[in-house]
Amino acid sequence: MHLYPTRSLLALVVLGMLAIAVGCRGGDSSRELILATTTSTQDSGLLEVLIPRFEAESDIHVKVIAVGSGAAMEMGQRGDADVLLVHAPAAEEEFVAAGYGVERARVMYNDFVIVGPPSDPAGVAGAADAAAALAKIAASRSTFMSRGDHSGTHAKEQALWAAAGLDVPRGRSWYQETGQGMGATLTISAEKEGYTLTDRSTWLAAGDQERLPITVEGDPRLFNVYHVIVVNPDRHPKVNAQGARRFRAFLLQQDTLREIGEFGRAQYGQPLFTPDPA
């Protein structure tokens, strides 16, 4: 009984694969743009407003890949994305200095806030100094949920621990890493009654404001700024540099900035981002 897949069966499989190959269209590479961005721009709903406008205006199809800022820059470094919209300034400067990105430009800002349970076990409500607040959270061993995912928010959190003169308390029982996006981390923090650092826009759009009110805001160190970066086409010839530049210009044009400034005002009573090109 020597039986191997016969030729006709093989032919059937090949036919099936061909049918699929025909079904997929590669498309014109200049009409397609991969935008790697942070979870906050997607979870807040901003991109759902901006992207259709850009697509209508430019006839370029945008594929939005929402990951942390760290992962977005990783994609840019490998040439797997064309343009980035990220919020981790220190890492971005290194990224540009290393020649992975060009034409970095500021688009908008909002701020980070520290949110926590209404019972406020660390007694930080109303504090003006974010680093001092983290020190108090550590001293009282109150639950703190970290993103732990190399996102822009995670980078900011690490910088705040450093500003407080503390090592990042990894491995401590009260310090937990979700490894997930901002929306998911807010949900987990509300359930576990922990503090967490969040950008204001995701907290307003996806957070539970009653169970997780703002405890610390207004510290200049909590400034959260978003930059657009074009992936360096000299390093990766497959990158759609023309489309990336077009998207960069679109973000910085007057009517887009006005729309960013209005986004969320009707629904949340305040804009989620403040346009600030520079």
């Binding site: 699929i20 190959a21 079904g23 997929c24 590669g26 498309g27 590479s29 397609e32 991969i34 594929k63 890949i65 490998r78 040439g79 797997d80 990766h236 497959k238």
Partner: peptide, 20 residues
């Protein structure tokens, strides 16, 4: 399928075909 990958030239990443 990533552009930096072996079959990046096929430009199939982020398509239904890639999921298949």
């Amino acid at each position: 399928l990533w552009r930096s990958g072996l079959f990046g030239g096929l430009r199939l990443i982020y398509t239904p075909t890639a999921i298949v």
